[in-house]
Design a binder for these strands. Sequence first.
RNA 1: GCUCCCGUAGCUCAACCGGAUAGAGCAACAGUCUUCUAAACUGUAGGUUACAGGUUCGAGUCCUGUCGGGAGUACCA
Length: 541
Amino acid sequence: MKNYLEEQLKKRLTELGWPVDDLQFSRPKKADNGDWSTNIAMALARVVRQAPLQIAHTMMDELSLDPEIVDRYDIVAPGFVNFFQSPDYLAHQIRQIVTQDTRYGRNNSGAGQKAQVEFVSANPTGPLTVGHGRQTVLGDTIANILDWSGYEVVREYYFNNAGRQMRKLGESLRARYLTLKGLPTELPEDGYQGEYLVDIARDLLDKQPDLTVDTELSVFKEYAEAGIFQIIKGTLARMGVTHDVFYNENTLYESGKVEEVLDELRRKDLVYEKDGATWFKTTALDFEQDRVLVKSTGEPTYRLPDMAYHREKFRRGFNFIVDVFGADHQDTYPDVLAALKVMGFDTSKVHVVIHQFVTLMRGDEVVKMSTRKAEFVTLDELLDEVGVDVVRYFYIMRGAGSHLNFDLDLAKRQTEENPVFYLQYAHARIASIFRKAEERGIEFDAHAGLKKLNEPETLALINELLTFPEVVERCLRTLAVHHLPNYLYSLATALHKFYTEHRVISDDVTLSQARLLLLKAVKIALRNGLQILGVTAPERM
RNA sequence: GCUCCCGUAGCUCAACCGGAUAGAGCAACAGUCUUCUAAACUGUAGGUUACAGGUUCGAGUCCUGUCGGGAGUACCA
């Protein structure tokens, strides 16, 4: 309908010799204001030098619209033109949904394009925490949206298993191992104190009992890394997340890609040496201060391999690149992007999604988290308590830019007041009606006449139903995926209201079949939406 | 000090590119099950969108400033 209106109005505006650039449509909040509305008359007022209402009339008077699509339109002060869709059009749309079934909501705006979403990317120093959970769900859901928009999507996990942190990890494991062996050993300063290392140490002792203080650290380091990755991957699997690629930062050194970036920046005269370190001349690119690329110890800082990594993303042919970071990485990407731009890449293809932190609460108390100390709640523990559906929904229901308060007590208590169940219940309710229909011998008819569907609650439900594809598109455009749970929630509300007012199965077979057809379409939208969120759609509860 | 995010009902949060009377849930109060699942629905109450200016037909949304919260500002990642 929107496309049709756009087409017709563009034609008309061109006839009148008026610009079409500002033409846009929106869905009014109130039903009285139609199904689609345009503010073009107000937007043109200045250019055309006429009153908005007059412009609207001039525009609409000579325009004939297809009555099978547009029922009527109103011109309303201060200058809105509101369009109402025709019943035939609605009926046609509902049948379309049932035909499309698992494809309803998909679009092909990304057809033939490759997208990559990098998320989680936690170094293997400990189990994923509640803090990582937000990023996990955010990234996976964005990837799902890209998939539903026709992109070929790669989910990627970038990690670093070299450097100071990993050395500390190896040392920590060694201390745990030796202690278990009866040689009490202090954990190193800033070591990792988590219980999980004791488990891994026990495991190592079991398999290789002969290690000593003099054994190469790398043995402990590698064993710790493998053990922790196993834990992390297990958690991701429970979350329903599968990464296609685990990208090891180290390969960028081995292949010389890191060196190549340095050379290239050097050729652009953006690198200099000072105090034994190698600096990136970011001030030449309008930044406040220069940044170190290679420390005086010879070790590169994170940003140099990051540049190399992103350069590889471009070279691998991705057209749409999403980086999901926590707020603490705020400052790390601008100079990385700047370097890529200098190297001639189109950085508008990179979309950085930054999410604010999760504040973990136990009742009124804030739980402090630190991977190094033992103070944290793991994502696994959370999954044990509330289950995947609740975890995924809770993490995604708020905008990424907002701080998220995750009250453990509340989440654990979640049983009846839970929005996830509200959604799932809507789906299960429809399933239940279909079971009942079958029992009563009422056949489902995909071609049932829909003329009787005209009550307010029914029309409200239909309108909500039909906006699903727009919501998917909006999620893609804004990469703000919380729009989806919000939408599904209002779809569920519309369904529950409809259910309360109207019996689906009655003696009026024609009406029953019409309502069944509508509910079939609603069920499809709910199921597809929940699927994007990674939440199950139960047939009964 | 500087940069970024945030400030909306008692609490947790929505509001697509600036649109029409700022919406939900929870908590409070009052109702609705002989009928497809009451994990639901209806109603009442709750607001100077932190504050002060500005831009315009129109501002929660954009601009400037102030206040408050968070993150960053490393030769950590």
